[in-house]
Design a protein around this nucleic acid. Structure first.
Lengths: 344, 344
DNA sequence: CCGGTGTCTGGGAGCGTTCACAGTAGAGAA
DNA sequence: TTCTCTACTGTGAACGCTCCCAGACACCGG
């Protein structure tokens, strides 16, 4: 029948005060336990931990952030003008990898999408105001203004893929695009193909440039003449891949292999080849890039280059955290791997 | 040569104090302008807005949250035990839609993934502690404990898809699965097919149950006998679809159509049919569900049922916001649409 | 003239933390 | 003994905001 003092305590979320009272120590001691436990006697630490368990205390991040100036969260920022990236299954894998890598550090990930110039301005402003401690930036195109602005505002930023056309040195993690292309073209050569065409990515993206460079290197090494009629640029979309393959096929009907710089474009190319009556791989061998779900879904299944997305995301998070911790920005390049399936 | 007071002011992020001083009013007045501008004279409001522009002031969300108890953010929570969801391109579309719908309200979206039981506990605790104002929950399976726990903790929750096996009434937004299935099966009947098999989704998911129900309804209406040898359960994965189609084909080699409850499973089924020497759609017509990117990528392109993902995400956000605003939870069912392509 | 009502304003209090600092106790060195 | 050093603890003052209340002022009806 008594109005138990517990009632009020139970209703409110327990604060550091409640824990301190429960443990018979001061706020300061509880705070020290919460932040690493230095300069705390074993007895006090144990009492505090027991009190935390008993009260179900969870630190109020807002109060903490208010004083530390840190938010305890990170952003995954996408600055693609088009919807291309969402058509791309790689995005999934990368996002999930980053989310989980950060989760082990108890850092929630905020997903932000800034497609239009207007949105980019708003989000740059938002982030610069200190709402997140760091940014994982996915933006393939040349000279992204968002990256520059964030770095200039002193926000730790890690890019996915090699940055192009930036004045500032940007931390980044990327797969070895050039070597991946080399592996694929070598594979096609080893299978006896000699008239190898390529559908590149957009040439204002590192993937576009580097994979083309790898392709050219291997052909040159093999003593084959450089021939621009075998090269056509795509835009990483299925339709773009189809259009490029179509142009290539018209120009060079004698094509016996095709290295396409993404699996999605390769799907488009496969459809074009089928319509043109070419058998794959008998008449034309096709190699993709990414090893995305699109590669397994195609008929025939695509021979492709696997990008180590799990390692990429893990490294991005590692580099970001070390940058937040005050270290200098760094770059990481990870190896790629040839995956043999039916198309080549 | 003078030590300008501006120096200190410029270095620090401007606070509400700075704005008040700059505008020649008190903190209270600035705060009122920030929160709707009631009980503020036009002159004061204008002075404050000018001061905000001049100082580049951005409200400190942590300070605000500390007192209001609101975080100003929402979570997109995925509680799938397997990686299935990430294989599914629908996820992309839904996530993007929600992010953008919330962005127009200036609410950042936190992406959270709780695959294991352990992660679910941690995230439930995190969210219950008040770190987000509401949750968009994607979880297809029966009786998700996370949903129950969150609702019990008083957190606004909106589910994607119809909840199954829950004691509490849950707000949700879903596509009309049953009617979608009806449309597809009617389409197959209209094309003259009579031995129509189906690969269902898992029967502990609403999509599995409802689409099967729609299939059965139409067959019954057409006077065809119910025949369980034409029904096989899949698991929404490509491999699962292949296995189910394979079983169905062994049991009923006379099959002339197949309604598969997801595009991804339909891809698996197409591969099986091809290997079995069946032509699609000549021998066996195939209908999918989702209208995901997988539908366009298949050979032949899949006839399928489009789920209105853009509307689903917009509605989820609308319902969540109204729930955060104190209104009662509600349910929304949105219509689906038949998309005719080559496979049926 | 009064009192009431409605609009607008300023400033104190407090949200739940961390931080800086002062202070205590005990061990060991001078 | 006394002084110094180290390990530990408690407390007041922020952090930047919103809430609340008191008070000023203008207007209006009686």
């Amino acid at each position: 029948m008594s109005v138990s003092p517990n009632n009020a305590t139970r209703r409110r979320r327990p604060t550091i005060h409640d824990v301190a009272r429960e443990a018979g120590v001061s706020r300061g001691t509880v705070s020290r336990v919460l932040n690493g436990g230095h300069y705390v006697s074993p007895a006090a630490a144990e009492a505090v931990n027991a009190a935390i368990r008993r009260t179900g205390y969870v630190v109020n991040r807002h109060a903490r952030s208010l004083i530390t100036g840190r938010s305890g969260s990170a952003a995954f920022l996408l600055t693609e003008p088009q919807e291309k990236f969402f058509e791309d299954p790689n995005f999934n894998v990368l996002l999930r990898g980053c989310t989980q890598a950060l989760a082990t550090h108890d850092i929630p990930l905020l997903l932000m999408i800034a497609g239009t110039r207007e949105e980019q301005r708003r989000i740059t402003r938002y982030i610069s105001a200190g709402h997140v401690d760091g940014v994982l930036l996915v933006s393939s195109h040349t000279g992204d203004p968002v990256a520059e602005a964030l770095v200039h505002a002193g926000i730790p930023v890690v890019m996915c893929g090699q940055p192009m056309g930036h004045s500032t040195r940007l931390a980044h993690v990327a797969a070895d695009d050039r070597d991946g292309a080399r592996q694929m073209v070598r594979h096609l050569l080893a299978a006896g193909r000699r008239r190898i065409g390529t559908v590149t990515g957009p040439l204002d993206t590192p993937g576009g440039v580097e994979r083309l460079a790898g392709y050219r290197e291997v052909l040159a090494d093999a003593g084959l003449p450089a021939d621009d009629s075998l090269v056509e640029a795509g835009d990483y979309s299925r339709d773009g891949g189809a259009a490029a393959a179509s142009a290539l096929l018209t120009r060079r009907p004698d094509l016996d292999a095709l290295f396409v710089a993404s699996d999605l474009m390769a799907q488009g190319a496969l459809a074009v080849l089928e319509r043109a009556g070419r058998r794959v791989p008998a008449d034309v061998a096709v190699g993709g890039f990414d090893d995305s779900t699109a590669a397994v879904g195609s008929r025939p299944a695509l021979t492709t280059i696997r990008q180590p997305w799990d390692r990429i995301s893990a490294e991005m998070v590692r580099v970001l955290l070390s940058q937040i911790g005050g270290e200098d920005s760094s770059a990481v390049i990870l190896p790629t791997e040839l995956i043999r399936r039916e198309s080549a």
